[in-house]
């Protein structure tokens, strides 16, 4: 009946990472990724250490690795770019097996690959341990503008509903022997998209009516405020502190270059 499950990132669990309040995790994730991205380009060892740390964080979620690996598909464009980079970059060349590649391109590619993997791994660790509900509460708690939070929350809620509607329209088109093969079929697709937009807009109006009928006055009520102890903040910020410390150490001592 109409209801469809959206893509599921969140995995139920009771690990250390699951139990951290969502807002501490979100701040910890952002700070860590910024810290890793800001590492000096020569700090290869430090970068690898951060990769190991990210792997540790994912391991601490106790989510099966096959689940994590499937989510890592989002990194593919970066990987492709990283593979191409050594061949197209200019500068001094060096031999790499049977081919010669740009030395600086190779270094940049490896840096890009490691940085992207660290970011994606940590983001996955956040996503698999945080429910949509907690993500919304975290954004509310961190004073992200209420309107943006509501847009996000409603998108998550209605993605499945709109997808199901579009699927039903597709089935209805094809049931009348429609096949999208040539440019001639584009107007049909376009008017379907238009109809879908109008229906979604009307649904938005009905949802708004239903909200007002229950006393909505422009803000989503904060039903259970999030709370975090100093210990939880410390734990959530540990990776970020490690990244900043590693970066500082490299800058001060030239270690790792």
């Amino acid at each position: 009946m109409g209801s469809q499950q959206g893509p599921h990132l969140h995995v139920e669990g009771d690990s250390l990472v699951h139990r951290l309040p969502a807002h501490t995790k979100l701040v910890g994730l952002l700070a860590f990724v910024l810290g890793v991205v800001a590492l000096p380009s020569s700090a290869h060892l430090a970068r690898l250490a951060m990769l190991a740390l990210a792997v540790l964080v994912v391991a601490a979620t106790r989510v099966p690795w096959r689940h994590v690996v499937r989510r890592m598909v989002v990194e593919v464009p970066f990987v492709v770019f990283a593979i191409v980079l050594p061949f197209v970059a200019t500068g001094p060349r060096r031999a790499l097996g049977p081919v010669t590649v740009s030395a600086s391109g190779l270094e940049a590619a490896l840096t890009l690959l490691v940085t992207a993997t660290v970011s994606v791994l940590t983001a996955i660790a956040f996503a698999v341990t945080t429910s949509t509900r907690d993500l919304v509460r975290a954004l509310q708690h961190l004073r992200v503008p209420d309107r943006l939070v509501q847009i996000l929350a409603f998108m998550v809620r209605y993605l499945g509903v709109v997808t199901a509607q579009s699927q039903r329209m597709k089935v209805a088109r094809e049931s009348r022997a429609f096949e999208a093969r040539t440019v001639r079929s584009w107007p049909v697709i376009a008017s379907s998209a238009g109809a879908l937009f109008v229906r979604s807009y009307e649904r938005g109006e009905r949802v708004h009516l239903a909200m007002m009928s229950r006393g909505y006055s422009g803000r989503l009520p904060v039903i259970e405020p999030l709370r975090a102890t100093a210990g939880q903040w410390t734990l959530a910020l540990t990776p970020a502190v490690c990244a900043v410390a590693a970066g500082a150490a490299v800058l001060v001592s030239g270690w790792g270059s």
Binding site: R133, V156, Y158, V207, R214, I223
Partner: peptide, 25 residues
Amino acid sequence: IVFQDPDDQLFMPTVRDDVAFGPAN
């Protein structure tokens, strides 16, 4: 008022939050 399409009425991430929406307002 209970509207005809429950998808219009239920918009919060969980059932509990949705039932709490009105009284919280």
